[in-house]
Amino acid sequence: MTTVTDAEHDHKNITRRRFLTAATSAVGVVVGGMAVVPLIESMEPTAAALAASSTTVDLSPIEPGMQVTVPWQKKPVIIINRTPEMLASLKETMDKGILKDPLCKVPQQPPYCTNMYRSRIPEWYVGIRICNHLCCIPHYRPKKGSVAPWWLGGFHCPCHGSMYDLSCRVIQGSPAPHNMAVPEYEISTEKMSTTITHMYPKAHLC
């Protein structure tokens, strides 16, 4: 009878509807996703921002023992011309065993800076001066004994007291988990200049 075929037909049609609803929604989601990707990517730094993103610093006025802090991509970057005593203090902190990550195993610096100096050239430290704990700017305390009687020189954060040595390696007992980040840079002692190019992607700023 007609009712039977009607019911059969209804049943078929409902399956068809379910299938088409699923298929249309699936394609709709793809279309939506296709629209979302460009929208989100549009919020990334523009080519103009990227082109303006590297900073070159003249090193010639920085005498041994001196430091300068320059803005790079709205972040303070510290450049220290370390004296031999300062370099010796880096060995000392390691010998004392007070560092959280003395061998710089956590990639807080590009591979070419994975050494106790955390730099391309031992004397010249180039690094982002942002505390790994919660993003404050640590004070530079190069004098021995200035923060504590055992202090060998380094950085002391005013916010929650994180301590770092002169390679910005974090000292045990600090709230900061890792050493301070080192960006990617190029340096030439002939031209006496350094160019900070970009963030080292694996490094965790704070």
């Binding site: 068809r16 509807r17 088409l20 298929a23 249309t24 394609v27 793809v30 296709m34």
Partner: peptide, 26 residues
């Protein structure tokens, strides 16, 4: 590609519409 996927969407939506509007034919 963009036009292609939108066309696919349109065709599916058309079939979906006809599947529903079959009711009105009865």
């Amino acid at each position: 590609y963009v036009i292609g996927i939108l066309l696919l969407f349109t065709i599916l939506a058309y079939l979906l519409k006809t599947a529903y509007w079959l009711d009105l034919k009865k």
